[in-house]
Write a protein that binds this DNA or RNA. Structure first.
Length: 284
DNA sequence: CCTCATTCCTGCGGGC
DNA sequence: TGCCCGCAGGAATGAG
């Protein structure tokens, strides 16, 4: 599942292999992939033909490619989205959704997405910051992220801590996996009421989320070669470095207590019941 | 305005 | 062996 580190790795790949090139053809193989582009596939394609990609940007889990027209292609990888840079002779896989060809006849950019939660759209005039994603907050690795303001916003919420972490309008880039990992590092329970958070606890949480993301980014950034922009969730981080996610029944590396899994928000939460004490007044 | 459940989708794995 | 069902989850959406 691509979260911030994986998406940043993809952004770097796009910067390296796509920026500067002129789009010569666009093929929408599956209409669902551009469902958020309401004018439809023909409009999407027409807006891109002959345009040069001038940058590759990211906010949270959203990517966008500013074009020389001032528009931008917005991309979200969803659960299983990938961008692959492949020679035109390479056969199409079963989940190819959109294909971009370039005027240099070099490698194509292919958007591939098995579970189709991801998608692309054209943002008119969105080169600087697409208005479609203006509601997405800065992420914890950006200079623009203000720890104090995050803490204050957290205390104004009336919800559980993990729910707040997953709210992209409060902090972006955090998904289920890094939320669980960050909470474990900070020794905080997922159902902790946000309004009771104290400043040092908020700081531990931010530091924890930053630590796991930085670590994943370091590992993920090394795993793509010249024709593979990488990735869905497989940054190599998964198998080696996760402390709680997916580890139900395994001992906590800090205290030995067995990791528990609880169902929460229609998904799983993994935590150490000793290190991450359930609060007296949990917020569901 | 705020919070939260629901919804989209497909491959995989477990149970029978 | 094969079928069915649950599970995985980001974020838009609408209900309350």
């Amino acid at each position: 599942m691509p979260e911030l580190p994986e998406v940043e790795t993809v952004r770097r790949g796009l910067e390296r292999f796509v920026v500067g090139r002129v789009i010569s053809a666009v093929e929408v193989c599956h209409p669902r992939a551009i469902r958020r582009h309401l004018p439809g596939a023909a409009d999407f394609t027409a807006s891109l033909l002959g345009r040069r990609v001038v940058a590759a940007r990211r906010r949270g889990k959203y990517l966008w490619l500013p074009l020389d027209s001032g528009d931008a292609v917005i991309a979200h990888l969803g659960m299983s989205g990938q961008f692959l840079v492949l020679d035109p002779a390479e056969p199409d896989g079963p989940h190819l959704r959109v294909r971009f060809s370039f005027s240099d006849d070099g490698p194509q950019l292919r958007f591939i997405d098995q579970r189709t939660f991801g998608g692309l759209a054209l943002s008119p005039g969105g080169a600087e910051l697409p208005q479609e994603i203006a509601h997405i907050a800065p992420d914890v690795l950006e200079d623009a992220f203000d720890d104090t303001r995050f803490h204050e916003a957290l205390r104004r919420r009336r919800t559980g801590l993990k729910r707040a972490l997953l709210d992209q309008t409060l902090v972006s880039g955090v998904g289920n996996i890094y939320a669980d990992e960050g909470l474990w590092l900070a020794k905080l329970h997922y159902a902790r009421a946000t309004e009771t958070m104290r400043r040092p606890e908020s700081q531990r949480l931010l530091d924890g989320v930053r630590a796991v993301m930085q670590s994943a980014l370091t590992q993920g950034g090394t795993s793509f070669d010249s024709l593979y922009v990488n990735v869905n969730g497989e940054s190599g981080y998964f198998e080696r470095s996760l402390e709680v996610y997916g580890r139900r029944g395994e001992p906590c590396s800090r205290c030995g207590t067995l990791i528990r899994r609880e169902s929460f928000m229609n998904r799983s939460s993994f935590f150490c019941p000793t290190c991450q004490r359930r609060p007296r007044n949990p917020h569901w």
